[in-house]
Amino acid sequence: MKCPFCHHDDTQVKDSRPTEDHNAIRRRRLCGNCGARFTTFERVQLRELTVVKKNGAKEPFDRDKLLRSMRTSLRKRNVDQERVERVVNSIVRRLESSGESEIQVKTIGEMVMEALLQLDEIAYIRFASVYKNFREVKDFEEFIDTTVRPDGDD
């Protein structure tokens, strides 16, 4: 494993243990060149996934990009990061076990929306504002009225 600090190719594993959900191995590593310590995670990957964008462009699925987008929506919200990791793991498992190697970006977006609604309504609205490309305040109002409060509760 290459050191993220000095890019030296030789690092040593100092400690390995399973994550709390037992879906990955957490490894503490030490760079023999610069002495830096860092953590890596080893996960099972069932299949290579490709994301098909709205414009037809394709790119490899990036779990970290999914995690970053959820964390951005959840910024300054009181949601446990381990819970977010479990949700991301669940989404990845669902995608990998879908039988499809090419996944539409819309499918991923809908899974994230569904998960965020369960985690935190504010994060759900934040994500939706970008995902659904809200342009003005009435877009937020309509979205909240139809999805967060569909029965009209205030």
Rank of each mutant, 00 (worst) to 15 (best):
R93D: 09
S16L: 08
A24T: 07
E48S: 11
M113R: 03
F38R: 02
V112E: 03
A57R: 11
F140S: 02
K132Y: 15
R28A: 03
S16D: 11
T40M: 08
L116M: 15
A123M: 07
R47A: 15
K54H: 08
R27E: 01
Q81V: 14
R126G: 01
T50C: 08
D10M: 00
E142G: 14
F134R: 05
K58A: 15
V88Q: 00
N23Y: 12
R17F: 13
V52S: 04
R126E: 08
N78L: 10
E114Q: 13
I122L: 11
P18A: 15
S90Y: 08
R93V: 08
R27C: 03
L119A: 12
L49F: 05
Q104N: 07
E142I: 08
R75D: 15
I91R: 00
R83M: 13
R77G: 14
R126S: 14
D151M: 08
T11R: 00
F5M: 06
E85F: 12
D10R: 01
K65L: 10
A24G: 13
N133I: 10
L49M: 06
M111H: 06
S73R: 04
N133G: 09
R126A: 13
R29Y: 02
T19W: 05
M113T: 06
N33A: 07
K106E: 13
T107K: 05
T147Q: 11
P60D: 14
G56P: 04
E121R: 10
V44P: 10
F134I: 01
D120L: 15
I25L: 09
R37V: 01
Q104I: 06
F140R: 03
V51P: 03
D80P: 08
S90I: 01
F38A: 02
M111I: 02
K138W: 04
S90D: 11
N78I: 12
P150W: 09
V148W: 01
P60E: 11
D80H: 04
M113F: 05
E100D: 12
S101R: 04
D15C: 08
F5W: 01
G109W: 02
T39I: 06
Y124K: 06
G152V: 14
Q118N: 13
E48M: 05
M111C: 10
D10L: 01
S97A: 14
S101D: 15
E141T: 15
